[in-house]
Amino acid sequence: MTEYKLVVVGAGGVGKSALTIQLIQNHFVDEYDPTIEDSYRKQVVIDGETCLLDILDTAGQEEYSAMRDQYMRTGEGFLCVFAINNTKSFEDIHHYREQIKRVKDSEDVPMVLVGNKCDLPSRTVDTKQAQDLARSYGIPFIETSAKTRQGVDDAFYTLVREIRKHKEKMSKDGKKKKKKSKTKCVIM
């Protein structure tokens, strides 16, 4: 069974824990209790493949930012979460993405942009803004509501699919490099 290491990042209060708990335990946590770091595991079937999701729910508070490099190193894919009623959390996505790329030393890291709290009427981040940002990053965008469960499975499952595509691409690139290195030079 394939294991996928997913990391949920975003500013404090955007609903990272609520999304994760909704996926794992099928219930909505409405009281806000700032996370330092929590880890969850769940076995699911995605596109006919049974897999184990190892999900790291991270601290959004700035005082825990020193811990970010460590979990970013171990993560295979990242859910970059903002709240649709919090423009600052949307603007912060850029910083999370840049930090992930720096730590992973790669421009090509599996990510999904997630606009959470889409059940709320007080939207300050337009869907088109988020779609445009995701398009500019070359990553999928999904709106979710941890409260109603809308888009929750889709967000995590899409990230797994992005990781699969990335692994497939990397193995193809690896095979191309191996083929090239088999060419021999004969000096007579």
Rank of each mutant, 00 (worst) to 15 (best):
V103L: 06
V114C: 06
Q70Y: 15
T74C: 10
F141V: 13
R149S: 08
R164I: 14
Q25W: 01
I163S: 03
G174T: 09
L113H: 02
D154G: 07
G15N: 03
E62F: 02
F28T: 02
H166A: 10
T74M: 07
C80E: 02
V186C: 11
D173N: 12
G15R: 00
K101S: 11
H166F: 06
N86F: 02
R149P: 08
T74L: 07
Y40P: 00
D154Q: 08
D30V: 08
K178Q: 13
V14K: 13
D153A: 08
E98N: 14
V81S: 10
C80I: 05
K88E: 13
L120G: 14
I93D: 02
E107P: 12
G138F: 10
G10D: 03
Q70E: 15
D92W: 14
A59L: 00
N116P: 04
L133P: 11
V45C: 10
V160L: 11
S122G: 12
V9F: 01
L52V: 12
K128G: 04
V45I: 09
T20L: 05
R41Y: 11
E49Y: 12
K5I: 01
G75A: 11
L56D: 01
N86A: 10
V8S: 05
Y64Q: 00
T124V: 08
D105R: 07
P110I: 03
C185Y: 04
V81L: 09
R97K: 12
E62S: 04
I46G: 14
K178L: 12
C51D: 13
G138Y: 04
D33T: 00
T20N: 07
G174C: 03
D119W: 03
R41W: 10
Q131N: 10
Y64M: 03
K169E: 07
Y71F: 03
L52D: 15
Y64A: 00
T20Y: 00
R135V: 08
E49I: 06
L6V: 12
R164V: 08
R102C: 15
D105G: 13
L113E: 02
V29W: 05
G77Y: 03
T35F: 01
K117T: 15
F90T: 04
K167S: 08
N26H: 10
H166R: 09
Y157A: 13
R73F: 07
K128R: 05
Q131D: 06
M188S: 12
S89T: 12
I84M: 15
T50R: 11
Q61I: 04
L23R: 07
S181V: 15
T183L: 05
I139E: 07
K169A: 07
C185G: 14
E49M: 12
A66E: 03
Y64T: 00
S106K: 15
E98H: 04
L56W: 02
R164P: 13
L159E: 01
S17F: 00
A83E: 15
M170Y: 12
E31P: 04
G10V: 09
Q150A: 12
L56K: 03
G48I: 05
D54G: 03
I93N: 03
K167Y: 06
Y137D: 09
F156S: 02
T144M: 04
K178V: 14
E76Q: 07
D54R: 03
V9S: 09
K180L: 06
V8N: 05
Y64N: 00
L159Y: 12
E37A: 00
S39M: 08
P121W: 06
G10E: 04
H27K: 09
T2Q: 13
A134L: 12
K175S: 06
Y4S: 12
L23H: 12
V45N: 15
Y157I: 13
E31F: 15
G174S: 06
V160T: 10
L79C: 06
L53S: 13
K104H: 10
M170R: 14
D54V: 02
I21C: 14
N86C: 11
T127L: 10
T2W: 10
K180W: 10
K177A: 12
R73T: 06
D54H: 03
P110Y: 01
V14P: 13
T148G: 12
F82A: 14
Y40F: 03
V8W: 01
N86Q: 13
Y96I: 15
L133H: 14
E3N: 14
D153N: 07
M67W: 00
D57G: 00
Q25K: 05
H95N: 15
V109W: 07
S17D: 01
K128I: 09
C80L: 12
K104V: 06
H166T: 12
V160Q: 14
G151L: 13
N116Q: 14
G151H: 15
V109F: 09
Y64C: 01
R41F: 13
D126F: 09
N26P: 05
T124L: 08
T183F: 05
K178M: 07
V8A: 09
G15K: 03
C80D: 04
D119F: 12
A83L: 05
Y64P: 00
D30Q: 12
A11V: 12
K101R: 09
G174I: 08
L19M: 14
K177D: 11
T124S: 10
E168Y: 06
K117Q: 14
I163N: 05
G12D: 12
Q43V: 11
T74A: 05
E91M: 13
D153G: 07
T144A: 09
E76V: 10
E143G: 13
Y40A: 00
I36M: 04
D154A: 07
K128Q: 05
G77D: 02
A66V: 09
Q70K: 03
S136W: 03
E168L: 04
E107Y: 06
G115M: 12
S65V: 05
E31C: 11
V125Y: 11
K184R: 08
R135K: 14
K178R: 09
Q131S: 12
K16A: 03
A66Y: 00
T124Q: 11
R161G: 13
P34L: 02
D126M: 09
L133F: 08
Y4A: 09
D173C: 14
